[in-house]
Computed example of a mutant assay.
Amino acid sequence: MNTQENIRPDEHIAALANAQANSRATPHSYLVGLIGSGIGGSLSPAMHEEEGSKLGLHYIYRRIDLEALKLDSAALPELLSAAERMGFNGLNITYPCKQAVIPLLDELSDDVRALGAVNTVLFQDGKRIGHNTDWSGFARAFERGLPDVSLERVVQLGAGGAGAAVAHAALQMGTQALTLFDVDAARAQSLADELQKRFPAAKVSAGTSLEQSLATAQGLIHATPTGMAKLPGLPLPAELLHRELWVADIVYFPIRTALLQAAEALGCRTLSGGGMAVYQAVDAMRIFTGLEPDAERMYTHFQSLLQR
């Protein structure tokens, strides 16, 4: 049972303020957090705090769960202001806030300006600076887990904040033809248009027939919330999968989603969302602290967390 469910926002903020007061006990103290909905199972706090300890820091990472607090993204202005006032060093941002947070920021990194999505906010010198480490985290995980697959023709499900990041990564890695699908067809078309401008040598389009697109694709990227513990199930009919596909999922809780299980049953090569979760955290920690986390140590720790 989530112990935050009955905590009012003001009580939650007071608890975070107490944590910040404690975090000032050493000169190398950091207070960061994660804003999102349904994040009770996130492993980010454990990953960040363990690596912070290894780096000799007093590092506190808190979940700010909109679902548990009975809030929605309309609470973002209040939450960001409260975090600034309490001395947070920064925040990670996840579903459904990666795009909604942008108007609330003072500066945007080049990645954010290109992607239109934020997953990391640094509070520095009185400014809120937005970054995106999702795309770099996905690229590094992909290169580790599926280093030799063909990227010629790729289908992607999901064109939201995370989808924008992983589509960018796929094209950066050499995808020649990327077809996007989303429950909001206009959003898929908008993202396709933006990516086409950014990657003119590739062909980027919003798809019309998932069956036809998958039939000739080498790979499938899944970038929607479907398959998460709170949204179980498959994001597409299982019969559309075929053994020649590689399948990459960005969901990591559970680590073996229904999609990956269906793909593995056919003999497909697969990539879970675990690597992306680790490597985006590595890059976010670097932004928060200015120090270089040990990526392999964080990856090993993440694997141990999955066994608990």
Rank of each mutant, 00 (worst) to 15 (best):
G158H: 02
A192D: 06
R140Y: 01
A202G: 14
P200W: 04
T179H: 05
A162C: 12
A201C: 11
G160Y: 04
D182L: 10
H168G: 06
M173G: 00
D184G: 10
T179N: 09
L178R: 01
D148W: 06
A201E: 13
P147N: 08
F138C: 06
P200L: 05
H168A: 11
P200A: 02
D184W: 08
K203Y: 05
V154M: 07
T175P: 07
K203P: 03
G174W: 01
V166A: 00
R144Q: 11
D182P: 13
A159N: 10
V154A: 00
V149K: 01
A141Y: 00
L191S: 05
F199T: 05
A167W: 04
L157I: 13
G160L: 05
V155A: 01
R140Q: 15
R153S: 06
Q172Y: 08
A164F: 01
E152L: 12
A186M: 12
L180R: 05
S150C: 15
F138Y: 14
R187H: 07
L191T: 00
R144I: 00
F199N: 01
G145Y: 01
K197V: 14
L180G: 01
K203H: 08
R144T: 07
G160A: 13
V155Y: 00
L146K: 07
S150M: 11
R198C: 03
G158R: 02
A162N: 02
P147V: 10
M173T: 03
M173K: 12
D182A: 15
A186E: 15
F199I: 11
F142G: 00
G158L: 08
A141H: 03
V166Q: 00
E194Y: 05
Q189C: 10
A186D: 14
D193Q: 15
S150D: 15
Q176L: 13
L171H: 04
A159E: 05
V154E: 02
D148M: 11
L191F: 03
F142M: 14
L171M: 13
A177V: 15
Q172W: 06
V149D: 01
R140C: 01
F181L: 12
R187M: 07
F138G: 00
A162F: 05
L195Q: 04
V154R: 04
A159V: 12
R187T: 13
A202S: 12
F142Q: 02
A139T: 01
V183K: 10
S150E: 14
A201P: 09
A186Y: 08
A164P: 03
A192Q: 03
A202P: 13
R187I: 14
V183R: 11
G160R: 04
A185S: 07
Q189A: 13
A139V: 00
L151G: 04
A165K: 06
A141E: 04
L191Q: 09
A188P: 11
E152Q: 15
S190D: 15
V183A: 10
A201L: 10
